[in-house]
């Protein structure tokens, strides 16, 4: 299930222009991250994917269908969106009811609904909190409730806005495994993130935004090796990229895994010759 964005402009009623001409194609089964500084337009862009926002001009097509012709409730079957702030999303009295709301609303039969809810709670380590009120939970746990309630809708496209915010190490690892499961089951995943290490470790393609535009779009490793792009978007390279640059590698590594494998194979770059920086 693909997303196609054509010449998208979006202006807020107060006159602030948030998106100024965005073109983007996300193919079925891709895992892409959108990065860029606060206010670059990342959230505004992804909120067009499930139709919460409609273009001022231009088009957004989800699986070939123009979102302007669809209600949010219709798109909910195709695109699951995890809000950045769980407060904007949660309303039910128990965690389980919250997670079950989506699949119930979509009319899934009871058996499938139960399987989906059980899986979503398990994947987010919330099974033990099923009967808790979402507001008895910590902010990090509430964020996981928000993720679980979107997972349970079993949509072919999943959009996660800052999924690792406030998560501890275990929580970040959970989000990583969820992304892997979504990929393995063929879902299209779009993530918005400020965590460059997490981005390098979990996404195959990166879209860089600055001032309402896409300034770069490519394989994760290529993007993080492009200093000019990172500077323009005011984002810092991942830890391993900074380390291998400091070590003078010609082609920097982006993850711990890559660093180790290239050290083992004595492979530092095309010429295996440090140029120093």
């Amino acid at each position: 299930m693909s997303i196609r964005v054509e010449g998208l402009h979006f202006g807020y009623p107060d006159g602030v222009t948030a998106l100024c001409g965005v073109d983007l194609v996300v193919e079925s089964g891709e895992r892409i991250a959108i990065i860029g500084e606060n206010g670059a337009g990342k959230t505004t862009l992804v909120r067009h994917f499930n139709g919460i926002m409609k273009p001022t001009s231009g088009r957004v097509l989800v699986n070939g269908v123009d979102t302007a012709t669809r209600e949010v409730s219709q798109l909910a079957r195709e695109v699951g969106y995890v809000f950045q702030n769980p407060h904007e999303q949660l309303f039910a009295r128990t965690v389980r009811a919250e997670v079950e709301f989506g699949p119930r609303n979509l009319g899934y039969p009871a058996g499938r609904r139960r399987r989906l809810v059980d899986w979503a709670l398990e994947a987010t380590r919330l099974t033990a909190h099923s009967d808790a009120h979402p507001y008895e939970l910590s902010l990090a746990e509430r964020k996981r409730v928000a993720i679980a309630s979107v997972l349970a809708m079993d949509t072919p496209i999943v959009v996660l806005d800052e999924p690792t915010t406030g998560q501890d190490c275990a929580g970040v690892n959970d989000v990583g495994s969820i992304l892997a499961q979504l990929r393995d089951s063929g879902r299209t995943v779009v993530g918005v993130t400020h965590d460059m290490d997490f981005c390098a470790e979990n996404f195959d393609r990166v879209v860089v935004m600055a001032r309402g535009r896409i300034v770069a779009d490519g394989p994760t490793a290529e993007i993080f090796r492009d200093d000019a792009v990172l500077a323009e978007a005011a984002v810092e390279a991942p830890s391993m990229t900074r380390l291998t640059r400091r070590l003078g590698w010609n082609r920097s590594a982006i993850t711990v895994e890559e660093l180790v494998s290239r050290l083992d194979h004595r492979e530092r770059g095309p010429s295996d010759h440090p140029h120093g920086q």
């Binding site: 606060n38 406030g166 005011a234 984002v235």
Partner: peptide, 13 residues
């Protein structure tokens, strides 16, 4: 208490 959780890398820096 986690003052930079929602900030971009430049902001947390």
């Amino acid at each position: 208490d986690e003052p930079t959780s929602q900030l971009d890398p430049a902001g947390s820096g």
